[in-house]
């Protein structure tokens, strides 16, 4: 990722014959940094926009419009990650007939960096899912399904660290309990593990060992369940863990106008955001950083 990013920069500056001025501009701005996270969830194979006569979302969504918006925002800030929180599959004939191939090819072309497994990713079973994943040149992240000895082994990563402009972003994924949601024979061999324990373990690693500056959870747990407040959801996850900065949610098709702020188990701020479903909205979160002189000093003392 870092390398590709760097090469892009070299390429563009060489073409313009402006490599020196561009580099010096970068040095000038170095004390402030902005990382943009763009995200979707529950797109459910909606590749074409909604029809003009749709009562709820006339002309809404569509990958062409999404790609154009992503491209425009990336021009504004090249330090951008594009993420998805699962249920890429199922909802239009594109999935019934092509089994996820076109969805994943399009996401790859749009520059997605990572997604996670929603329950509908299992709708054709583990074997077919593992075959369709070869069309994605970005990672699928999950850390609470036991996938060892299934066809998904080696195709799913627990987490991934992206380094953009010297900022390290650790991303991991959590999936919903599949029992009662997906037919058993479609996820044979996969067990659901409690997200809280896993999160503490992984985020500790991301924060303290890998020294990530931002920790993002791609969650398909669902925002909240009013009928049963005990069911694991993003609100519970945010409150009962530490270290997560942003939860990008899915499953409940919750349309939020903007992210909600929650205090975690040690009183620190966590954001939860979810953009409904069907590729109608794109989430955009900007992280602003500045160079920290105090930290620099303490580093010098350590040396």
């Amino acid at each position: 990722m870092k390398r590709r990013h760097f090469l892009d920069k070299v390429k563009s500056s060489t073409i313009l014959g402006l490599s020196y001025p561009l580099l010096s501009l970068k040095t000038l701005n170095k004390s402030f940094k902005k990382i943009t996270i763009l995200h979707t969830n529950d797109v459910h194979s909606h590749i074409d926009p909604f029809p003009k006569n749709d009562p709820l979302n006339p002309n809404g969504g569509g990958v062409i419009a999404r790609a154009n918006l992503i491209n425009a925002l990336k021009l504004e800030n090249p330090s951008t990650l594009i993420l998805d929180a699962g249920d890429v599959f199922q909802g239009t004939p594109y999935f019934n007939f092509f089994e996820g191939e076109i969805e994943l090819k399009l996401m790859s072309k749009m520059g997605y960096n990572a997604s996670t497994l929603g329950n509908h990713e299992f709708d054709n079973g583990i074997e077919k899912l593992s075959k369709s994943l070869k069309h994605a040149d970005f990672s699928f992240l999950n850390s609470n399904y036991t996938i060892k000895n299934t066809a998904l082994e080696n195709l799913i990563k627990e987490f991934e660290i992206f380094e953009i402009d010297e900022i390290k972003i650790g991303v991991f994924g959590l999936g919903i309990e599949l029992d009662g949601l997906v037919e058993k024979n479609l996820y044979n061999g996969i067990k659901y593990l409690d997200p809280i324990e896993i999160t503490d373990e992984i985020t500790d690693k991301l924060k303290n060992y890998y020294k990530c500056d931002i920790i993002i959870c791609l969650s398909h747990l669902g925002y909240k369940y009013n009928k049963n407040k005990e069911i694991m959801c993003d609100l519970i996850l945010a409150k009962k863990t530490k270290n997560i900065d942003l939860i990008i949610g899915g499953h409940t098709h919750t349309f939020m106008n903007k992210p909600i702020e929650i205090r975690n188990s040690i009183g620190k701020k966590v954001l939860i955001n979810q953009v409904g479903c069907y590729g109608i909205n794109l989430g955009k979160i900007d992280f602003y950083f500045s160079k920290n002189s105090i930290l620099e000093k303490s580093n010098i003392i350590n040396v």
Binding site: P49, G62, A65, D213, K269, I280, N281, L282, N292, E296
Partner: peptide
């Protein structure tokens, strides 16, 4: 460790409509 401190986070959700 990178020496950058997170100052602020801002988010907004953008409508995608037929381009």
């Amino acid at each position: 460790k990178a020496n950058y401190l997170l100052n602020d986070i801002q988010g907004n959700n953008i409508k995608i409509s037929d381009s």
